[in-house]
Design a protein around this nucleic acid. Sequence first.
DNA 1: CAGTTTTTTGCGAGATTTTGCAATTTTTTT
DNA 2: AAAAAAATTGCAAAATCTCGCAAAAAACTG
Lengths: 249, 249
Amino acid sequence: MLKEERKTLILREVNIHNKVLLTDLSQKFDVSEDTIRRDLQDLANSSKIIKVRGGALSKSYSAFSYHEQDIYAYKEKIVIAHKAVSLLQDGMLVLISGGSTNLEIARLVPLDLKVTFLTVSLSTAMQLLEHPSSETVFIGGQLSKSAKISVGGEVIGKLTEVRPDICFMGTNGIDASAGMTDSDWEVVTVKKAMIQASTKVVLCTISEKLNTVQKIKVCDMDRIDLLITELPPDSEALLPYHHSGVKIM
Amino acid sequence: MLKEERKTLILREVNIHNKVLLTDLSQKFDVSEDTIRRDLQDLANSSKIIKVRGGALSKSYSAFSYHEQDIYAYKEKIVIAHKAVSLLQDGMLVLISGGSTNLEIARLVPLDLKVTFLTVSLSTAMQLLEHPSSETVFIGGQLSKSAKISVGGEVIGKLTEVRPDICFMGTNGIDASAGMTDSDWEVVTVKKAMIQASTKVVLCTISEKLNTVQKIKVCDMDRIDLLITELPPDSEALLPYHHSGVKIM
DNA sequence: CAGTTTTTTGCGAGATTTTGCAATTTTTTT
DNA sequence: AAAAAAATTGCAAAATCTCGCAAAAAACTG
């Protein structure tokens, strides 16, 4: 990979997420942290970004500071994303929904992997397009203003025509007895179709969402093949989910 | 192989892949790296590409972050966008393609307007979702890494099923005799279908692109109903287009 | 066509850049 | 104050670039 190419990608990364971590970039591009540090220094010297200890911040948003909570969630989501991408293999057809956790997954897809992504989320699609060797197919339809994903009958119809190897889902509510629940009717409809279509369903969520129940049911626990949180699989908080037969990572 | 021939092929390579490596090209064309280096230097001098250590990058590659104010010819595009949105009326079905001019149009849609937008461009869709009272439908399909729009047969098929009242197009080349031309085969295919589908075709382009011709033809001038540039309609530069029967705004 | 000029190409020597590593210092956290 | 994380510094190997040069190829000329 060319140095300038990498710097361009880093700049884009900073502008999308408003901040980047040295360690993340180092892993993503598979170079030492020293190298990334030097790249960030370059970008900072040409005042494209603001270099801070441990990473860098986007210039346009430097006025706003981050809430501790955001950073906390960010760290957790990175852990989840790393676990998730380890499931990917060359040649797979991967269905991936929206949400910030899935965005992190899209961001952390190893650069040498060649898979075909299928998505309904605009921002996930945007991120996936940054990946050099993978294909991305967007399932079109009416766009939901709140979730920024395609919804409606057309999406559902399209989803019956495909058979993805794996599906990465995010959710607002997950509970060992109530199963997976969410709050937006249209989003739920799409999620149901995604689950129906996929060979393997992987639910990615931060532990904060564990044991919460939303208004509308997406599916029972037994439709979920694998649950990924930032916690270690043998963590106590996950015991109820072990009991309900879901694999945990 | 002739030097100029090789340079043309290299340029194509850069535009397809967004980057090229000296070592790759040297092997591919079976010449020394020095020769390729000189070719790249030439192409960079005529600002066709950006030369970097170890290879070269495509021009569009580096400048593509949305909330950055370095949109080329920003002021001109705002003038164009204002003219364009004045054509919109409640209840219309509006087809809109990608590109920075159309992004500006999307941003300047009057807040009280209620129209349904139809688009193939991820960034245009993102922007349209900000609009409070309009619907947005995304036409899905395989995504083009360079143009960030849906391409392929599925898109074409979908476009035959709709009949938009108006279609906002951008372009890379427009010429009174050669008509509308562009450089990417897949993008051209989609644009043709968009024109075919629409009742009224509006071409929005900065005056810099007037009288330029690209490699692939999209359509003749007589398929364009209205031409919008940042210039006043009676400007001298637009005379040839008046003569070819297009309305000008 | 022979001779001349110009352009292109490959090569070698030395300079520069990039990168990862290790040792040390600074900053932050506990 | 101790421990951990990040930054700095110096360094060496590898990759890449610059520059000059000469052979080869192409273009031009009378």
